[in-house]
Deep mutational scan, measured.
Amino acid sequence: YIGSKISLISKAEIRYEGILYTIDTENSTVALAKVRSFGTEDRPTDRPIPPRDEVFEYIIFRGSDIKDLTVCE
């Protein structure tokens, strides 16, 4: 799965898409590269977040912050 395009939804209901870079089982983290944030879209939340235009080089997510993770390709 390393190198695959991943769609990830955080506990804050924010969806991110990026390339799976590393999975650290010891620290329970997932790192994505070339990440875009799509905001909360239409998911119900107390704090709606708009999508962002910039592409983040890397984002490291803690396993406890991840609600859903899907391989896109």
Rank of each mutant, 00 (worst) to 15 (best):
K34L: 05
G3K: 05
D42K: 05
S28D: 15
V30F: 14
A12C: 13
T25S: 14
R52G: 13
A31Q: 15
S64D: 14
G18T: 00
I9N: 02
D24P: 02
D46L: 11
I60C: 08
E73R: 05
S7Q: 07
R15G: 01
V55C: 09
I9T: 07
D24C: 10
D53W: 03
E73C: 10
E57K: 12
G3H: 00
A12V: 11
T70W: 05
T40W: 01
S4E: 08
A31H: 15
L20E: 00
G3Y: 15
F56A: 09
S64W: 04
V71R: 11
G63A: 10
L32I: 13
K34R: 09
I66S: 00
I14P: 01
I23L: 11
T45Q: 02
S37V: 10
S64P: 10
E54D: 06
Y16N: 06
V35S: 06
I19Y: 05
T22L: 09
P48W: 09
E13N: 10
E57I: 00
D53A: 09
I9D: 05
I49Y: 04
I23V: 11
S10G: 04
E26T: 15
D42P: 14
K5R: 12
R47N: 04
V55D: 06
L20K: 01
Y21M: 14
E41S: 00
E54C: 05
G3L: 04
E13W: 07
R47E: 13
D53T: 14
R52Q: 14
D24E: 04
I19E: 06
V71Y: 09
G3N: 04
N27Q: 14
D68K: 14
D53R: 08
T40V: 00
S7M: 15
E13M: 15
E41R: 01
Y16C: 01
S64N: 15
D24F: 01
C72R: 12
L20C: 15
A12H: 10
G3Q: 04
T40K: 10
G18P: 01
E17Y: 02
I49M: 12
Y58M: 09
P48E: 04
K67E: 03
I9M: 05
I6E: 01
L8K: 03
L32A: 04
G63V: 07
S10E: 02
K11F: 11
K67S: 05
V35F: 05
D24A: 06
S37R: 07
L8A: 00
T70Y: 03
I59W: 05
T40G: 02
E17H: 01
Y58H: 11
A12P: 01
E17D: 04
Y21Q: 15
K5T: 08
E73H: 13
R52Y: 12
E73Q: 10
K67P: 01
G39L: 06
V30E: 01
Y21P: 04
L69C: 10
D42L: 06
D53P: 09
Y16D: 01
S4I: 03
I49W: 06
S4T: 08
D65L: 02
D24R: 01
S10N: 11
R36D: 06
T40R: 02
F56P: 05
I6D: 06
S10R: 00
P44Q: 10
I2M: 11
V71A: 12
N27Y: 03
V71D: 08
E54P: 01
D24S: 11
T40D: 00
T70D: 09
E17C: 05
L8V: 12
S64L: 10
D46G: 13
E41K: 15
K11A: 09
E54M: 05
P50R: 09
E13L: 10
V35G: 06
G39A: 00
K67G: 03
I59G: 05
I14H: 00
I9C: 01
P44A: 14
V35N: 15
A12I: 15
I2N: 02
R43P: 05
S64H: 05
D42M: 13
I9A: 02
F61A: 05
R62M: 04
I59L: 14
D68P: 01
K5E: 07
S4Q: 11
F38D: 00
C72L: 13
L8F: 00
L8M: 07
S64Y: 12
F38N: 01
V30H: 04
K34A: 08
